[in-house]
Amino acid sequence: MESTTPRPALGKAPDAGLHPVSGRPLGSGSPSHGGKSLKAGKGATAADAITGPAKDKYVDLGVRVPKSVRKRLRAQAKATGVTPDDLVSRLLASALGTGR
C-alpha cells in the first residue's frame, strides 16, 4: 500500500546561503554587486558600480535667500555640528530625492 504522506517540497540547499569562496553568508539571492546597476556613467567603469558610487565633486551655487533664513541656517548648522554648506547640500539632496 502506498503512503499517502505528501513528499516534502524542494528546499534550499544547506549551503545555499554561503558564498562558495569565503564561506560567509550571502545576501538572500542578490548578486554580489548588491543589485546596483552596472551601467557606468561618463568616465566611470563597471568596477565603480561594484565598489561604490563615485565621489561627488563640490561646486559653487550662488543663491539669494532671506536674511532670516540664513540666520536660521547658521544656527541649525551650528547646533548639528556641520558647516552651513553641508547642511544646505543635505537639505537640497533630500528635497530633490537623491537620498544623499
Binding site: 513528499r7 517540497a9 524542494l10 528546499g11 534550499k12 540547499a13 544547506p14 549551503d15 545555499a16 539571492g29 548578486p31
Partner: peptide, 30 residues
Amino acid sequence: ANATVALDPPPFAFTVGDVLSDGRQGIAAE
C-alpha cells in the same frame, strides 16, 4: 548565472543548486 540574468525571470526561490542538493526524481519541476 549569466543566462539566468539575460532570461530575466521573476524573483525565484530555488536554483539548480537546490535541485542538485535534493536529488529526488522529478524535483527539478519545482
